[in-house]
Nucleic acid binder design. Structure first.
Length: 722
RNA sequence: GGGCGAAUAGCUCAGUUGGUAGAGCGUCUGCCUUACACGCAGAAGGUCACAGGUUCGAGCCCUGUUUCGCCCACCA
């Protein structure tokens, strides 16, 4: 840390120095003024965007490469208005192609000029003060004017004097203070700085060696480019609020006393006439210590520090990579000699409907407490999780919260169904089972039906998929995966199938045990995304044992539960049920009306369908289900092929021949199109020779299935007559 | 000036080893079916920005273009 006089970013409104990171650049249409500085040695015309600063010029510079102007180097010209003689120097900071090739040099008000002034021993003349007004040095006509008023007045005077050669439009970026929007004034002043290069070096290495990793990875490059182009950090602020700089100056000697406790005497000469620095530290200068300073540091043996440092993940927004993330890494490596965290996960930024970042000053941010009152904490949390792909900004729209609210409601309702059927001890709450056994489902060894094996298999897949998503930082996909499983697999299919046993005769213990188990595991999977509702429901489950979900291990997915056979059965049931529902909807069959259904199928598929009869009957509104290879398919029935089986629904008087022909024709066109696509692929020798065998095999199977379906459709159409 | 991201169904967006385009909302058709109308069932809707290239095969890989957005930057 050092103190010195340098050009800093100065905010004339807040009247403080700020760091480079607090300057927001904004492209603007501006003007480039070409101004003649009279000289007896030749034409000198400078080009500038800030004419008001010329009042503080102490030189003119040209490029050392600029042969046409070389003869002027070492000569002088006259500064208009003021009348000061200005030396003409050659400096590598000047580009000969830009503007006129002459640069006016104002060491007190421009960082580049400051460098030129240093190298050529030019004087510094301060013409703008800390409030952005012109000083006495700017001359009596300008002193006290605002810097922008002065600009206009300078040009006015120069035009009057015939010294403005031309004015051209010029697009360039101006720096603004990120807090108040005031145009930054580069100002020469005495400030404290941190020398950054030595701190950046290990921080660069930490990212290179992947001691710290970034998600999504591209942010690593952002971090790296900042780190490798780092500049010293101005940490003193002329503000009221903050950590006051712990340095005392002595009126009697030059010594600086630096102390953690307030001293009464100068450390150098022992004198009592000391006064503390008036300035405070940049707020980030304390924030960069955050990963260790709250844990007991600088006591390196503090238990919390030993236990919790370094931590695993920092979750934050990309907008503060420089302000905070990068600096925490540097501070930790410097003071703790280890990384502060191993992974940096950058979330997207939540923006308003117009894409603007939510901010207090814009007033475009809804009050989270209002949102939570209206929609619920979990709904808010879940919706944002599911709608936020890694590192991508989210356009927030309150209506989107319906997604989370509805899902929360779905969980609640499904739980009502289940908890209405089983008591706290796991005993069935209604309808005696066949043998009158009321023993708990908990200690019971269940005898799984195939649909139980299916949902357990699906649960296992969901858990392992979800884990993988989370491990790969794809939280949105993890959320979507659980959402889909719970709503569509568990609620739409399993619970509906479960009602066959739940509301029917017979032993209910197996189905209750499975429902409770799958609900409980789903709650665990959902818990990080919907902590409140899941704990609430879980506490009522017979399996809770008074423990919080928070205390349980996260489900990993039990590979032993995977059951391809049961999944195959489910596919058949789904296909049959869907095709029946399809026909019912197409012919507006009264939803309350149970209809006869026949399924044409050969063994072993026929048995599969027979064994799923109860489910098909309940889910598709079926009166009677006939299954076999030769079930009748007469005129006046609707027939839908599903691979090698066919769902036939006799609907005498309901099926309109023309409508059915249209339906089947449309279906045939679809199958035809798909079939020719597959045929084209398989006819391609390159495909058969070079594609992976399993891909080719899949296409062949697909062709076979489509051909079967097509022949059935043709048969059905023939049955309808022409 | 440099870098990064985006462009997919009417809307908001998913889609990581290149192999039959998905969700939510909205729309249309039926349903208040004893967990849920914040719901159930069914349906329609897409030359995946444009132009080339690689490949048997491209939303996905490569090159270029256009349009948006963000970050960085001392050409005055």
């Amino acid at each position: 840390i050092y103190r010195g006089d340098y050009i800093v970013n100065w905010c004339p409104v807040d009247q403080t120095a700020i760091s480079d990171e607090e300057v927001q650049h904004e492209e603007r249409e501006s003007k480039l003024y070409w101004i003649r500085y009279p000289s007896p040695h030749g034409e000198v015309v400078v080009a500038t965007t800030r004419p008001e600063t010329m009042l503080g010029d102490t030189g003119v510079a040209v490029s050392p490469e600029d042969a046409a102007k070389r003869h002027l180097v070492g000569k002088t010209c006259t500064l208009p208005i003021i009348g000061r003689e200005l030396p003409i120097v050659a400096d590598a900071a000047v580009q000969k192609e830009f503007g006129s090739g002459f640069v006016k040099v104002t060491p007190a008000h421009d960082p580049v000029d400051y460098g030129i002034g240093k190298r050529h021993n030019l004087a510094t003349v301060v013409v703008i003060d800390r409030t952005g007004k012109m000083t006495a040095q700017a001359g009596a006509d300008f002193a006290g004017l605002d810097r922008f008023e002065a600009r206009a007045k300078v040009i006015e005077r120069l035009e009057h004097d015939g010294l403005v050669v031309k004015v051209e439009p010029h697009r360039h970026a101006v720096g603004k203070h990120d807090r108040c929007g005031t145009v930054i004034e580069p100002l020469l002043s005495t400030q404290w700085f941190v020398k950054m290069a030595p701190l950046a070096e290990p921080a660069v290495r930490a990212a290179e060696t992947e001691a710290i990793t970034f998600y999504p990875e591209r942010w690593r490059n952002v971090y790296m480019s900042w780190m490798t182009n780092i500049r010293d950090w101005c940490i003193s602020r002329q503000l009221w609020w903050g950590h006051r700089i712990p340095v005392w100056y002595c009126d009697d000697c030059d010594h600086l006393t630096v102390s953690r406790t307030d001293p009464t005497r100068c450390e150098g000469c022992g004198g009592a006439k000391i006064r503390q620095d008036e300035d405070v530290l940049d707020t980030w200068f304390s924030s960069w210590l955050w990963t260790f300073s709250p844990l007991g540091w600088p006591d390196e043996d503090a238990p919390d520090l030993k236990r919790y440092h370094p931590t695993s993940v920092l979750v934050t927004g990309s907008e503060i990579i420089f302000f905070w993330v990068a600096r925490m890494i540097m501070a930790s490596l410097e003071f703790m000699r280890e990384v502060p965290f191993r992974h940096v996960f950058l979330t997207g930024i939540v923006r308003d409907g117009q894409g603007r970042k939510m901010s207090k000053s814009l007033g475009n941010s809804p009050d989270p407490l209002d949102i939570i009152d209206k929609w619920g904490t979990d709904a808010f949390r879940f919706t944002l999780s599911m709608l936020s792909p890694p590192g991508k900004d989210v356009f927030f729209d309150e209506a989107k919260l319906e997604l989370g609210r509805n899902f929360g409601n779905k969980m609640w309702q499904a739980s009502r169904l289940i908890l209405g059927a089983v008591d706290k001890e796991g005993k069935p709450l209604f309808k005696e089972n066949a043998n009158g056994d009321f023993t708990s489902t908990l200690a019971f060894r269940p005898e799984y039906a195939w649909e139980d094996r299916w949902i357990l298999s699906a649960l296992s897949r969901c858990a392992s998929d979800t884990n993988r998503c989370f491990e790969e930082w794809r939280l949105n996909e993890g959320a979507a995966r659980v959402y889909d499983f719970f709503w569509h697999d568990f609620c739409d299919w399993y619970l509906e199938l479960a009602k066959v046993r739940l509301y029917g005769e017979g032993d209910k213990r197996t189905v209750l045990a499975v429902m409770v188990h799958v609900l409980g595991e789903s709650l665990k999977l959902m818990h990080p995304l919907m902590p409140y509702i899941t704990e609430e429901i879980a506490s009522a489950l017979p399996t809770s044992n008074g423990r919080l979900l928070l205390e349980h291990a996260y489900p990993q997915g039990d590979g032993r539960a995977l059951d391809a056979e049961a999944e195959g059965r489910m596919t058949v049931l789904r296909d049959v049920v869907t095709s029946v529902r399809n026909v019912r909807a197409a012919y507006r069959v009264n939803p309350g009306l149970k209809i006869p259904v026949r399924v044409r199928a050969h063994e072993p598929k026929a048995s599969l369908v027979r064994e799923a009869t109860d489910g098909i009957v309940r889910l598709a509104g079926v009166a009677t289900l006939e299954v076999g290879p030769d079930v009748a398919k007469e005129k006046g029935s609707a027939a839908t092929p599903i691979g090698d089986l066919e769902v036939v629904i006799p609907l005498a008087g309901v099926v309109d021949v023309e409508a059915e022909r249209a339906r089947l024709t449309r279906e045939r066109e679809k199958v035809d199109a798909e079939l020719s696509e597959v045929a084209r692929k398989l006819a391609n020798e390159g495909f058969v020779a070079k594609a992976k065998p399993e891909v080719v095999e899949r296409e062949r199977a697909r062709r076979e299935r489509l051909e079967t379906e097509l022949s059935k459709l043709v048969e059905s159409l023939g049955l309808l007559g022409h």
